[in-house]
Nucleic acid binder design. Sequence first.
DNA 1: CGCGGCTTTGATGTTCATCAAGTAAAGTGG
DNA 2: CCACTTTACTTGATGAACATCAAAGCCGCG
Lengths: 231, 231
Amino acid sequence: MELKNKNCICETCEFRHIVFSYLDDDGIQELCDNKIEQAFRKGEIINREGEPVTSFKYLKSGLVKLFRTTPSGEEQVITFTRPFEFVSNMSVFSGEKYRYSVSALEDSVVCIVKLSYIKDLFMKNGSFAMGLLTRMAEINEKIIGQALDLRQKNLVGRIAYVLLYFGKEIYNSRIFDLPVSRKEIADFIGMSTANVIRTMSEFKKDGIIKIDGKTIEVADINKLEILSRRG
Amino acid sequence: MELKNKNCICETCEFRHIVFSYLDDDGIQELCDNKIEQAFRKGEIINREGEPVTSFKYLKSGLVKLFRTTPSGEEQVITFTRPFEFVSNMSVFSGEKYRYSVSALEDSVVCIVKLSYIKDLFMKNGSFAMGLLTRMAEINEKIIGQALDLRQKNLVGRIAYVLLYFGKEIYNSRIFDLPVSRKEIADFIGMSTANVIRTMSEFKKDGIIKIDGKTIEVADINKLEILSRRG
DNA sequence: CGCGGCTTTGATGTTCATCAAGTAAAGTGG
DNA sequence: CCACTTTACTTGATGAACATCAAAGCCGCG
């Protein structure tokens, strides 16, 4: 976990157009002064459920998972997010403690902004506030929609859905390396690890996907989509 | 579906302290001028999934359910909400169309505010914006948390959870009339109607609850809570 | 009064979790 | 770099949990 307070490069950050599109150059400069970047290696925890929220964070690069731990000690994976989706989630404003944990699935860089600064900005700059609200709304809709999508499907449908999700939403490629273990997929779709593996093996036997360890190749996307829909 | 553009009584509306606590008297007066009240009878649709969002709505009195319809035509119930939780949900800012349908489970009154007015207010009044964001965040956390809670439980645990939810969160009473059919409970917890009924009958047999049609009395809340936790 | 929808219960079958045992892979310390 | 340990993965067999089907009773409503 390495801390680098780089020279300010926010002016050219591609993020600017997504999150802070309503800030002028002075505003961006000020943001920069209140921001640090932090790098996390694969597997490291970025936020821990229950700990106080002290800053506003967003993912600059990498891939993370949101999850929570049930009273009985099992992990529930809530969703996976790429850059341009916030890491802090709504916990920032809705409470003083993180509702979910966040960990890095790939090496990731997180921008960390003083919470008081973001709140101040939010109060003063209506456009910024509107942009932030809209973005947060989208993220929540995604999480809720995913949960509902999965809920209505059976095992086969859920596996197909997840594979399509990684292929289309996360990697935008027919071939990709799964960033998660089979168990994490199980924790995401709410099924047992053994059955996740079994179902993936069957997809392989049926020529729908090819598997080599973590590497997945979608061989028959049509069939996968049918399975996802009908599941 | 009856429309009444009452004389303005927003100054004394208990809502004021929840949603619009950061508006002064002039602000409230203005809000009133941009608002109408609409009454819905039990069973009526307030918002329909897929239709354009034209106004900002919140529940003044009554009880509603949020739901969506799956491609195969089944209903998925997302959550139930009482007054002080918004009806519009995040759809208002995150997209032009409603993501979910909303219908009245009891006779309900909805306040309808011009969307452009709310957006304008949001832009100009930072405190209002902050209050709104916080509230919306809470609602989303509730929905997501409920979905995750239910996901980790088995049939028995889910039924126990739902009964406790109605008793504690919705009615705050040991005896209450279920505002939903058995099928709607099934659509909420993601189990079959037959098994919802069966499980409730077993709770009755075991003396955990008493059932008389829609009327439920929680006889042994301890046992119910244990079942909910262990389920 | 009769129809349709909601409720109830039993019987049956499918789906999925669990257990177990073995293999591969990945980290760990010498 | 190798032996060791641990963790992830895989597959089969078994049983539990749950859906589905069916038939009957109930209730509200036109």
